[in-house]
Design a protein around this nucleic acid. Structure first.
Length: 565
RNA sequence: GCGCCCGUGGCUCAGCUGGAUAGAGCAUCUGAUUGCGGUUCAGAAGGUCACAGGUUCGAAUCCUGUCGGGCGUACCA
């Protein structure tokens, strides 16, 4: 249910009927309950433009609005605000419909498009570490969200499987011989050992360099070693994805190396367009207003990741035919993407109507405000971080419910992983964020545990009620009414989150919904004996829809819920 | 040097393309509740929205400058 756009339309139509150009009409949620449910503030600006009295204009506008059964009242307030109150009957009816609907009343976008979401993209030479966390979970959420809204999502895991370090790694893999899979399990260690060999043994170093060349030349033996290595490394990533509830599969992998053959073509096309210039021995594209060019080919003939990124854009636009291409990559690369996008456009790899966006995010900081590291100052491995999350969750769970060891482990897994993900997804992605175990595993405040707890509590109520939930919701008091309104705002929130690629909109919404529910529940008993059956049924229905909404929205973030906690 | 991002109560964060008295949660204080699952609920206190100008009916939000912090700045990815 899109509420805002319907209201916008009512107002737009009215403005049009008055022959007034109101620009893009945007109602917002009311600042206070006294103001109603929504408000439109645009009249003042329009009045200024037409040099008219705002209150008068607002009054005239109201008269021109054709009210639907959705709106109970609209009135002018203050200097020219228009306060809107929705019909309770309408809210009740739509909430009932949402409850009966698989999608909770959220419609698919009427103009679906094909979108590439590039995220996670780990380097195969090293173990996944915290540096990959944000891209992976933010990207996955956005992909899930767009998909839920009916868009055709193509996930692209642009893994780093190419580069000089692979010569060293496969040379070492070969040296260890058969049965070296065990060592490969700890990639970090493997890399370290290979590097040591490389630094200490000239013969080994030479072989490593030779293997780089052979690999690039398509040598069968080297390719075989390399494939084996990548396969193992990817397997490790998949283990992490599995635990994190990330929807990336092998089919989504589109490795850097897959663009190798395109790179000369990219250079060729840039040249054809007359964009290529040689500068200090390298082939570059200069961009107006930019001090530094985008270097696409090194002096020694080698390509760079800018070249690969251009090849990828070209592929995504021409082969995949994406209309929106989103890169979930940390903010430090904003300059890089700005350049790559500009060049891709100039070169005609994409047309103007394709939306290229860098969904950037800030750094993960430790409690001390400095980059998140281990006590020793090393990089935190993702798998170890997740282990710790689960361990801490286990300790944090109050064991009101008696869990078997198996169940406890499952619950801790859902709670712990959820806490890590939610802590990240609940804040504005653009800012750096402080990683704090205690806060993220707290039962108070905007945390996943609070939401999961609410879900479990509602589940308990529903179980105890011993009856099915009917889809009939009637709203007999103000809190019930506010609940229904909040529940119906889900689609507006999801759409805004998808539009801006801002998962924290969803988190804020869920938190507001849940605190509102707690308040509602405190004041409106459900299962008590003195509650009339109709009222009880209506409240049960609201509770049920609340639970479903929490479950669905957390599900978009890849976070699970529990019947008991 | 240049460029980008960020400065909101003690702490962590919201603030929806400029709107009505800047909102939450921790932490602090007060009160309710023998609890339809609580670590719940209600309330209080706490802010010159870094600073200074400007734009206008109206600015945390837009513009300019200053200060402070982060990041990036040609052949790594």
């Amino acid at each position: 249910m899109q509420i805002k756009s319907r209201l916008n339309e009512l107002i737009s139509n009215a403005l049009e009927s008055l022959d007034i150009d109101g620009g893009s009409v945007q109602v917002t949620e009311a600042g206070k309950p006294e103001f109603g449910d929504y408000q439109y503030n645009g009249v003042m600006a329009i009045a200024k433009k037409y040099k008219r009295n705002p209150r008068e204009l607002a009054t005239q506008l109201l008269q021109a609005i054709v009210l639907s059964d959705m709106v109970e009242s609209m009135e002018v307030a203050g200097p020219g605000f228009i306060n809107i109150r929705l019909s309770s009957q309408w809210l009740a009816q739509k909430a009932s419909a949402a409850l009966a609907d698989e999608r909770l009343g959220v419609e698919r976008d009427e103009e679906p498009y094909r979108v590439v979401v590039d995220y996670s993209s780990p380097n195969m030479a090293k173990q996944m570490h915290v540096g990959h966390l944000r891209s992976t979970i933010i990207g996955d959420t956005i992909a899930n969200l767009l998909s839920f809204l009916g868009h055709e999502v193509i996930r692209q895991n642009h893994i780093g499987d190419w580069g000089t370090q692979f010569g060293m790694l496969i040379a070492y893999l070969e040296e260890l011989g058969e049965g070296s899979e065990g060592t490969l399990r700890d990639l970090e260690q493997f890399y370290k050992e290979a590097k040591e060999r490389f630094d200490e043994d000239d013969a080994f170093a030479n072989k490593a360099r030779e293997y780089v060349v052979k690999l690039q030349g398509g040598d069968i033996h080297c390719i075989h070693l390399w494939e084996k290595f990548i396969d193992k490394s990817l397997g490790h990533c998949e283990e992490v994805y599995g635990r994190l509830g990330i929807g990336l599969t092998r089919e989504d992998v589109k490795a850097e190396s897959s663009y190798n053959d395109d790179l000369p073509e990219v250079i060729g096309e840039l040249d054809e367009k007359g964009l290529l210039q040689e500068s200090r021995g390298a082939k570059c594209v200069f961009i107006e207003g930019d001090e530094n060019p985008l270097i696409v080919q090194k002096g020694d003939g080698g390509y760079l990741y800018a070249t690969t990124d251009l090849a990828a854009i070209r592929f995504r636009a021409s082969v995949l035919k994406a209309r929106r291409i989103s890169y979930v990559v940390d903010a430090r690369q904003s300059a890089h993407f700005r350049q790559v996008f500009a060049v891709a456009l100039k070169a005609g790899f994409v047309t103007e109507d394709v939306k290229l966006e860098h969904i950037s995010f800030g750094m993960m900081l430790g409690k001390n405000g400095k980059p998140f590291k281990t006590r020793e100052g090393g990089t935190v491995k993702l798998i170890e971080l997740l282990d710790e999350a689960v361990e801490r969750a286990r300790a944090a769970i109050t064991q009101r419910e008696k869990f078997s060891e198996d169940e406890l482990q499952k619950v801790a897994e859902i709670v712990g992983i959820g806490a890590v993900k939610y802590a990240d997804l609940s804040i504005n992605r653009e800012s750096n964020y402080i990683f704090d175990w205690d806060r993220m595993l707290s039962l108070d405040g905007n945390t996943s545990l609070y939401l999961q707890y609410a879900y479990a509590r509602i589940s308990s109520i529903l179980r105890k009620s011993g009856e099915g939930v009917s889809a009939e919701i009637s709203l007999s008091d103000e809190l019930e009414r506010r609940m229904a309104l909040k529940l119906l705002q889900l689609e507006d929130v999801l759409r805004a989150a998808a539009r801006d690629a801002m998962p924290h909109y969803i988190a804020s919404y869920l938190y507001e919904l849940t605190t509102l529910f707690m308040k509602f529940y405190e004041n409106n008993p459900i299962l008590r004996a003195d509650v009339p059956p109709e009222v009880r049924a209506g409240r049960l229905a609201l509770a049920s829809l609340t639970a479903e909404t929490i479950k669905r929205a957390l599900g978009l973030m890849g976070i699970g819920v529990l019947q008991r906690l």
